[in-house]
């Protein structure tokens, strides 16, 4: 049963030249205990999607349509005060840079406890649960960690604290905004393992935002690839890696360095520029950069169709692709 269900989400951001569509009709659902990877380049709308769920879009940006359901409750129809209690309470987020995600002037324990207090947990109980949360993320000597200021902790320790803070209230949905990109490779692996462990323990629905398909392969059950504010392809991770149904997914996969490559030749790149959201073409937004484009692609924007295991917004089935791209 899906815990998080995003239905036809639209978001815009105000600019001098009017409102810019940054999320253009995203639909996505995540079950309890499932991790869905949301992949895309900068500006593809993946972070806006995540911040919409939390209700923390930056000034000037707003959700302009659609629904965001958590356990069947539409977050977008809630009043601001109720919306606030869902933040941290049912939907929590962990962030990209653990060095800056914590308030430097508060002890780590106080920062975890204040989240609990904001949701009506009383002082003594909040203290107890803070220590339990710190212990749960595998940090030794919780009392000592709780009394520390963030600058005393290493990057990995801080990310664990951020995770402890996010999960202290036992949310149903966890949004992970590239929480491993700022960390060393070994620490990355530890954090990935930790989130996976906690997902199992608490039956969390996790939305994992990243530009790194390697991380997705490691942790996600399913993947949604975003391009120009829409989902280009959504598929089970295994299927996407085995047989991508969208040329953009294929291009992304081709640009991952493979550990079996013996010759360090240049990685294939996707030519051309990401689309300009102020002037989207009438057709498929990927068409100008697409190796598989056909004459009809520039005329209308494709709607998602079910093909293989995937939902793909592409007119051209894999069978018609030229082999050059497939080789990647």
């Amino acid at each position: 049963m899906s815990v998080l269900e995003i239905v036809d989400l639209h978001a815009v951001v105000a600019t001098d030249g009017g409102e810019l569509p940054v999320v253009r009709g995203i639909s996505l659902s995540i079950d309890a205990g499932e991790i869905v990877g949301l992949v895309g380049e900068s500006g593809s709308g993946k972070s806006f999607t995540a911040l919409s769920v939390l209700g923390l879009l930056p000034d000037g940006a707003r959700v302009s349509g659609g629904r965001i359901l958590v356990d069947g409750e539409d977050l977008l129809s809630l009043r601001a005060a109720e919306r606030r209690t869902r933040r941290g309470g049912t939907v929590a987020m962990i962030y990209q840079d653990p060095m800056t995600a914590l308030n430097p002037l508060m002890t780590v324990g106080a920062q975890i406890a204040e989240g609990l207090r904001a949701h009506g947990v009383d002082g003594a109980e909040a203290k107890k649960r803070t220590l339990a949360a710190i212990e749960e993320v595998g940090l030794p000597r919780p009392e000592r960690i709780a009394r520390s200021y963030p600058h005393r902790l290493s990057g990995g320790q801080r990310q664990r604290v951020v995770i402890a803070s996010a999960l202290a209230l036992r949310p149903k949905v966890l949004i992970a905004d590239e929480p491993t990109t700022a960390l060393d490779v070994t620490i990355q692996q530890q954090i990935l393992a930790l989130v996976d462990e906690l997902r199992v323990a608490h039956d969390l629905a996790v939305l994992w935002i990243t530009h790194d398909l390697g991380v997705v392969a490691r942790i996600a059950n399913r993947v949604a690839v975003m391009y120009a504010g829409r989902i280009a392809e959504a598929a089970p991770t295994r299927s996407l890696f085995a047989a991508p149904q969208h040329p953009y997914s294929a291009a992304l996969l081709a640009s991952i360095p493979s550990p079996t490559d013996t010759v360090r030749g240049p990685l294939p790149q996707i030519g051309g520029a990401p689309p300009d959201l102020t002037a989207l073409p009438p057709g498929c937004p990927f068409e100008p950069r697409c190796a598989q484009r056909e004459p009809g692609c520039a005329a209308t924007e494709p709607d998602p169709v079910h093909r293989g295991d995937a939902d793909t917004a592409c007119f051209v089935p894999r069978e018609r692709w030229t082999t050059a791209e497939e080789a990647g």
């Binding site: 606030r84 869902r86 962030y95 920062q111 204040e114 904001a118």
Partner: peptide
């Protein structure tokens, strides 16, 4: 943002 994400007022 972290603070807001915790649901603080």
């Amino acid at each position: 943002r972290t603070a807001r994400g915790k649901g603080l007022t």
